Measured scan of single mutants.
Amino acid sequence: TEDARKEAKKIIDNGGSPDEAAKFIKKYGLSEDQARELVKRAL
């Protein structure tokens, strides 16, 4: 979702790792793979 993508970008912009961002956005109901893909797109 757009919200999850924004959250991921915010985490990374604040110095978080892509892994942290992926873990965080899994709470939106995404699978591990979906979360990682979304983080990649957010970069």
Results as ranks from 00 to 15, higher is better:
T1S: 11
E2V: 11
E2H: 10
E2P: 09
D3N: 12
D3A: 14
D3T: 13
D3C: 15
D3R: 14
A4T: 03
A4M: 13
A4S: 03
A4H: 04
R5V: 15
R5K: 13
R5Y: 15
R5L: 15
R5E: 12
R5S: 09
K6F: 09
K6C: 13
K6H: 07
K6M: 11
K6S: 08
K6W: 09
E7G: 04
E7S: 08
E7N: 06
E7P: 02
E7H: 07
E7M: 14
A8G: 04
A8Q: 01
A8V: 13
A8D: 02
K9H: 10
K9W: 11
K10W: 12
K10T: 07
K10M: 10
I11K: 03
I11M: 05
I11C: 13
I11G: 01
I11L: 06
I11S: 04
I11H: 02
I12C: 02
I12E: 02
I12G: 01
I12R: 02
I12W: 04
D13N: 08
N14A: 14
N14H: 10
G15E: 02
G15S: 02
G15Q: 01
G15A: 03
G16I: 06
G16A: 06
G16F: 09
G16Q: 05
G16W: 10
G16R: 05
S17F: 02
S17K: 03
S17V: 06
P18Y: 09
P18G: 07
P18Q: 07
P18H: 06
D19V: 08
D19K: 08
E20N: 04
E20A: 07
E20H: 04
E20M: 08
A21H: 05
A21C: 15
A21R: 04
A22N: 11
A22H: 08
A22D: 06
K23F: 07
K23T: 07
K23L: 08
K23V: 07
K23D: 15
F24I: 15
F24V: 15
F24Y: 13
F24S: 15
I25G: 03
I25R: 04
K26F: 04
K26R: 12
K26N: 07
K26G: 09
K27E: 11
K27H: 07
K27L: 07
K27I: 10
K27F: 06
K27W: 06
K27T: 04
Y28G: 02
Y28R: 00
Y28S: 03
G29F: 04
G29S: 01
G29E: 04
G29I: 00
G29D: 04
L30R: 00
L30T: 01
L30H: 00
L30D: 03
L30V: 05
S31I: 00
S31Y: 00
S31L: 00
S31R: 00
S31P: 03
E32F: 08
E32P: 06
E32S: 06
E32W: 12
D33K: 10
D33T: 10
Q34P: 00
Q34M: 08
Q34I: 07
Q34H: 03
Q34D: 10
A35M: 06
A35D: 00
R36K: 11
R36Q: 10
R36V: 10
E37D: 10
E37F: 00
E37T: 04
E37Q: 07
L38W: 00
L38G: 00
V39R: 01
V39F: 09
V39H: 01
V39Y: 01
K40A: 13
K40L: 12
K40V: 09
K40N: 12
R41E: 14
A42G: 04
A42T: 11
A42R: 01
A42W: 13
A42V: 15
